[in-house]
Design a protein around this nucleic acid. Structure first.
Lengths: 189, 189
DNA sequence: AAGTTTTATTAATCTATATTAAGAATGGTG
DNA sequence: CACCATTCTTAATATAGATTAATAAAACTT
């Protein structure tokens, strides 16, 4: 299972055999069943998770009980509550599994120590975080400047695989509209 | 002027005197007058800018000519078009000055070489990028789950200094509503 | 300081999207 | 396979926020 992660790291910052074995030591495997939580709002995020197989999501629940999805994490993506993980503050996000999912967990303390032992990993995570920020910025701009229908179309072209994995309800939650309205938009074709 | 940057870096990852002098060598000072562009949509972002004094903003212009502000950068903030800077792709963002502003510019090529010469700076930028991502995620959640009035109130408490620096029009553009509607909301108090 | 441009306010009207509700289709679970 | 959950669809109604327009107030520029 760890080889998926090693392969991913090597695609960005190639590691020596020795460095690889350090990584192998520091991560922990875990399998989540559908709907199982990896992290709950109110707790301090201890882990960042690399998805080997399946799909996780992070989401907030508003005062009316509605869920708002911040991120989907299919295979080969990292997911965490970045705010909580970085600030060691309890936060508002939940992370759970949309379907049976295998992950590798890296604790915050391990991550910090791993950066000193393998500086290349600091680069790896810097690059991933830069990419995530660029993607997040694009999403913000889309949200500010495009109507729901166009946001939906963009979502479909950006994440063609996800469309077939997740429910429409989840897509609606991600693009910021109600499932009823998404259903209406889809009916217009 | 560079000492502002050095001080900022030292607050996150303390540098040796020698490392400091490398930083000093690699950045370039620039002063922008009000409304002067640092970066225009369509170009590939060459620089990341550290604001010493004044305030910049990044924004996209939609098909109807409306501006949508992605980021404000007051003193001690970095700003760039992360997408364009990282992918070396032309992007949709403009960056200009809201008032006379002094910046330090770091080119992408310098940044890459600086990481090899001063690994601490890779950490510095990793941490800044993590913080920016955490803030961006919070903004996304707010946008998905809160009505305009609450987003405005949160903006006021999160950026009390900015409120007195920038126009209401800019605030409206950042929180994703029209200036007319913001004016109406403010009238309700 | 006058003149010009930009920003802010107010109010009437309009629209994209939400809400509510009810039935149909799907899908996970025993 | 059958049952219960959840998801999807459709339609009527409601509303947050946009648009338009006109005037007032600031804020640059010369």
């Amino acid at each position: 299972m760890v080889d998926h992660l090693i392969k991913h790291i090597n695609s960005i910052t190639p590691l020596s055999a020795e460095e690889e074995s350090i990584v192998v030591e520091l991560v922990r495997e875990k399998t989540l069943v559908r709907k199982q939580f990896l992290h709950r709002a109110g707790e301090i995020a201890q882990y960042s998770a690399f998805v080997v197989e399946g799909c996780l999501r992070s989401y907030a629940v508003d005062r009316n009980g509605f869920e708002h999805i911040l991120q989907f994490a299919p295979a080969n993506w990292w997911i965490s509550d970045m705010y909580s993980f970085v600030k060691s503050q309890p936060s508002e996000l939940n992370i759970d599994a949309l379907l049976e999912t295998k992950v590798l967990l890296l604790s915050r303390s391990c991550q910090v120590s791993i950066f000193d032992r393998i500086p290349k990993l600091e680069r790896y995570f810097r690059i991933l975080t830069e990419n995530a920020l660029a993607a997040s910025n694009l999403r913000t701009i889309n949200y500010l400047s495009l109507p729901a229908k166009v946001r939906y179309e963009k979502f479909c072209t950006m994440y063609p695989t996800l469309i077939n994995t997740i429910s429409q309800k989840s897509v609606a939650s991600y693009i910021g509209i109600t499932p009823e309205f998404l259903s209406k938009l889809r009916g217009e074709y």
